[in-house]
Design a protein around this nucleic acid. Structure first.
Lengths: 338, 338
DNA sequence: AAAAAGTGTGCAAACGTTCCCAAAAACGTT
DNA sequence: AACGTTTTTGGGAACGTTTGCACACTTTTT
């Protein structure tokens, strides 16, 4: 059972032309007479000709495909990033292949290598929370695969990167908690491997500093698996509560929802007494109880910018010398307690 | 800037063999001596040879790619289906290309045609809420593109389909509302075009019938855009409230969350007085306020089953005569009011 | 009127595979 | 030793494009 379509050869034969002439007419290249061009285009239209992208890819040695690695598409932040990526990619006639690492280093590496062997033209990646060793990415990059990092980026990798202003986002959220009267503010965050973890921690510390509140390391809890396992979160909450925090600043989407869930499950009586501010792009926060203040990242825009940078790398004639790290502002969405 | 890898030709040259011999050794086909096979495999391993999938696709006239169309990946139901699809596809060495219709017919058609021209081997699709005319799918199907429908399926299309037991899911949810004492139960649902809309309506009616509650058509509100526009939902809620329902049965993921959102926004005082039961696969329902009873679809499994059926169609030697419609059971998750 | 320049077309190779067909090598049988 | 049979290998076409080069024809220049 196979899918049949007409080819350039068919058109050439039908019109008594050579394949090269037909190809040129279709691609509108080189010198070709208006007359034959019209003839070919009309006939192609009639038989509903579609160029075979596989043949084209083979010939041009590129696939017009972009690989994407995120931890999970079920995460609103990432699904919004993907929408941004698609909006640009589609326009420029690339298609995207999405893979999920589920926060696992092994899965991430496997997926990247699978994508690379599928001949993608470039890669957009947000690292998994487990990832420490990016040697495999370096090696692909050295072989000529363009890579742009977004959100979770490595420090020592010379390429384009797109991130949110994590420092400011964290600072604003923490300051908001302080201004609403909280003094014992815990910080629940991701694996220390991640750039976002370090930057957001700094923002948290800076806000405490501004209001002369002592930074207490025991109030900071790291989750190695980014909240993929509920046990991990429950453990963190269990360790945090005896310190009697009156506010928690949480550092990522999955952790924010997971933490509220864990709070409700293990200590429903205190769940409503602790003020929560967290990074999340969930479009359902308005429904949450307890309610929370959220830091929203410009996810769609992040996807767009990253894709533009990647495509510029793919289509660059010469090796790129100057790399950019774009920083996009976050937005603090306060929700009044009901 | 291009990505360079070694090819069969390179190996053949290095080893003083012909490309055909190398190809056979790698694919382990036909008669080939153990000795040369080992030699080739060892060398291939050494240079980290990866077959070029594009060349293979061109030769074999297939892409090992499966197209997926869903309305949105940000919807938990669909992201879970996609995870199910990937789990099977990956195993069988297919990759998937995901497209979103955003509940728009135009976008859906555009995406499908784009995918088809990208030479996918098969298509998995859940129709958009706007879709009425599936002529374009018929035409692709007639040309030999295998298609499997899931969740939102057309009635008059002879192919494999995978759906949830929508009737029973709707029946159970409605019955649950009735058993908890509700008598005026509204039904908020999707576009009438969709199979799921019709089936769930029947389940709702059957439950009412079983308890001798009169079916009142004015209590049923349709949302043409599946809740993509908040205005649509607010309008429906506005029309429903004067009828003083004490319960609402909602027919899809997006609508369920959207409806609660609309209720809270427009009439916060009654939001907690109306019992809600709805189809949703959100993994955040436990956080919602007001809480609700949810009907969960076996999304992951649905993706797996659909993919298995699709791959069987793709790899079938002869045209398939018998088509199946698999029906999977839903699960009712009750949440105690807090 | 001949040479030069410009324009439109076709030929053929190439991209990296797979696989049919034929040739060569190895082996066994009389 | 000559032949037939089996096993292993190589040659080369094909998949559907793109594109450098050559050729033929037309137009312009000298």
């Amino acid at each position: 059972m196979r899918f049949e379509t007409s080819t350039i050869k068919d058109i050439a034969k039908a019109l008594g032309l050579s394949t090269s002439t037909v190809s040129r007419a279709l691609r509108d290249r080189y010198e070709i007479s208006e007359e034959t061009k019209k003839l070919v285009l009309a006939y192609a239209e009639k038989v509903n000709y579609r160029a075979n992208p596989i043949a084209r890819s083979l010939k041009e040695r590129r696939s017009y495909a972009i690989g994407i690695i995120v931890s999970e598409i079920a995460n609103n932040f990432f699904s919004q990033v993907i929408n941004g990526i698609e909006s640009i990619a589609y326009d420029k006639d690339y298609h995207v292949i999405i893979s999920q690492s589920h926060e696992s280093y092994k899965q991430e590496k496997l997926n990247v290598e699978h994508l690379a062997s599928r001949s993608i033209d470039g890669l957009l990646i947000a690292l998994s929370s487990e990832t420490q060793d990016i040697e495999y990415l370096r090696s692909l990059y050295a072989k000529g695969l363009p890579i742009v990092f977004f959100d979770r980026v490595p420090e020592d990798f010379e390429t384009h990167k797109v991130i949110a202003n994590n420092f400011k986002g964290a600072f604003d959220a923490t300051e908001h908690l302080i201004l609403s009267g909280k003094r014992t503010i815990a910080h629940l965050t991701n694996s220390e491997n991640l750039s976002i973890t370090r930057e957001r921690l700094k923002g948290y510390q800076a806000a405490l500093g501004k209001y002369h509140i002592e930074f207490r390391p025991e109030l900071v809890k790291y989750c190695q698996h980014g909240g993929m396992h509920s046990a991990e979160l429950e453990q963190a909450v269990k360790e945090l509560l005896p310190l009697q925090p009156d506010g928690i600043f949480i550092s990522s989407d999955r952790l924010t929802t997971g933490c509220i869930m864990a709070l409700k499950k293990t200590n429903p009586e205190v769940a409503h007494k602790i003020a929560i501010a967290g990074f999340t792009n969930s479009n359902l926060v308005e429904l949450f109880s307890p309610s929370l203040t959220s830091v929203k990242q410009p996810a769609f825009e992040m996807g767009q910018v990253a894709t533009e940078l990647l495509i510029s790398m793919i289509e660059a004639k010469r090796p790129i010398a100057e790399f950019e790290t774009k920083v996009l502002d976050t937005e603090l969405v306060k929700i009044a307690k009901q």
